[in-house]
Structure formats: C-alpha cells, structure tokens
C-alpha cells in the first residue's frame, strides 16, 4: 500500500567553503533562527526541522509556505535525493518526481536523443526508450524540431519537451513542484489534461505550490511549512482559513 511516513525528519545543509572563523562568528552572533552550529562546528542551515506526518493512499497533499520554507527540500527528501540527518522516512510505492524536469537534458543532442537518454536515466532499456520517443515526441508537438539539437529550441519549446518527457510515467507516489503549472497558454490546456490524468492515477500526490487556486482544485490536504517546520496540517479549507 503506498504511503509516506515521516517521523521527526530533519535536514541540515552544511555551509561548506565558508572559511574564516570570524565570518562564522559574525553570522552566528546575529542569533539567526535557522543558522546554527552543529556538533562538528560547522555552520548549518536547518532546512527541515522535526517534521512528522503520515500520508496515506488517496491523499492529495499541497505543501504551501513562503519562499525558503522548505517545500522543495522536502520534495527532494521524499524523492530520495537528500538523506535526512535525523528522523525516519518511509516511502512505499513507485515514486515519480517532477521537480526539475530539465535536469539531465543534453543541450547538444536532438530532442529525440534526449528522450532516449531520459529513458535510460529512468532505467528503461534502449528499445523501450526508443519506443517512448514517439509517444513523447507526438505529445510535445515539436514536429520536425524533434530531430534538431535542443540548444536551438526556444524556451517554450524546451518546456514542452521537458514536460512531455517528465510526464510519461505512471507513478504511485507523485512528487511535483509548481514549476509544472507554468507554461505557454496554448500548450497549457493540453498539459493540464495530461497532468490531471497523472494526478488522478497516482495514489498519492505531494505538490509544492504558491497557487491557492491549484491547491483548492487538486488537493485534499494542505501542509503549511514555515522556516522548515510544519505550522499547519489539515484539510485544505481549514489550513487556508488560518492564513
């Protein structure tokens, strides 16, 4: 059964390469909220502090909060990029992450080659990736540009390609950053339909966003983060009311 369980989860970002002791003292002396010194005398940013939550099957969770509240860090932690320094995290189910779709894109390769490469990144075989290329190519609507290096694409075309590549999957746990909701209007209608299907098919959705319309439309539960802590957690209407 797909689920996410976090128990007093914490992530610290050590600030390496800061060098000078005096600088360290100056930063720490301002008694900041999120910068502190850890056991081995490094300055660390507490990105996430003591998060405990449980997300069960069928829940659509919105992560909301100001910039730097820890939304994307939490998504990346759930995806398995960052290992927590304290606490426990358990994610059951096939994870699909739409965090930064352009990562791993090769600017010199053509759109088609990039789609095959993305397939390999995901652990598909070459044959499966090539088969995926047609589907993705058709959805992106790039047409003849699919066989031209990505370097020559306009920003909008790159977005189309990334979006098409990223959404060819059927995850059980879908992690999504709000990046995906931005895009050119013509493509957006098509993209939205695809996303809606992806979201409805996934058993769990975790979405980081600033857009309250999106939260109301898609989510059943909201978690508000502030300075790396959970300040509110509950049904969307309740959490949005509090703000």
């Amino acid at each position: 059964m797909p689920h996410i369980i976090a128990e007093s989860l914490a992530i610290d970002f050590p600030l390496y390469h800061m060098g000078a002791r005096s600088l360290k003292k100056r930063i720490l002396s301002k008694a900041p909220l999120r910068l502190r010194e850890d056991a081995s005398h490094r300055v660390v940013v507490s990105a996430l502090r003591d998060l405990s939550f449980r997300i069960g099957r069928g829940e659509r969770v919105a992560l909301i909060g100001h910039n730097g509240a820890g939304k994307t860090t939490l998504l990346r932690t759930l995806a398995g990029v960052y290992e927590p320094v304290a606490g426990r995290l358990e994610v059951a189910g096939l994870i699909g992450s739409l965090i930064d779709p352009s990562a791993g894109m090769d600017q010199e390769s053509t759109g088609r080659e990039n789609i095959v490469l993305r397939g390999l990144f995901r652990g598909l075989s070459e044959a499966e990736s090539t088969a995926m290329a047609d589907e993705v190519g058709a959805f992106s609507g790039l047409g003849e540009f699919l066989d031209v290096p990505v370097r020559t694409y306009s920003a909008g075309m790159q977005v189309r390609l990334s979006f098409a590549m990223a959404t060819v999957m059927e995850p059980e746990v879908l992690l999504m950053d709000e990046w995906f909701l931005a895009g050119d209007a013509a493509f957006m209608a098509k993209a939205r339909e695809k996303l809606t299907r992806l979201v409805t098919d996934a058993e769990i959705l975790v979405l980081a966003t600033h857009d309250m319309e999106v939260v109301r439309e898609w989510c059943t539960r909201a978690i508000r983060l502030d300075a790396g802590r959970i300040v509110a957690d509950g049904p969307v209407a309740e959490v949005l009311e509090l703000a």
Partner: peptide, 23 residues
C-alpha cells in the same frame, strides 16, 4: 524517478531512511 530495473517488492517500503539506523 520511474525505475524499471529495480525489483518491485509487493510488501514493504521501496525507500526507507532512518537516521538512527542508517544501513
């Protein structure tokens, strides 16, 4: 990321990370 090469366990977590018992 969708990863077809990883075996899919029917039971139990796919991704488990416990800072107290890091494995």
């Amino acid at each position: 990321m969708l990863d077809a090469t990883l075996p899919r366990p029917d039971q139990g977590p796919l991704y488990l990370c416990d800072a107290a018992r890091p494995r």
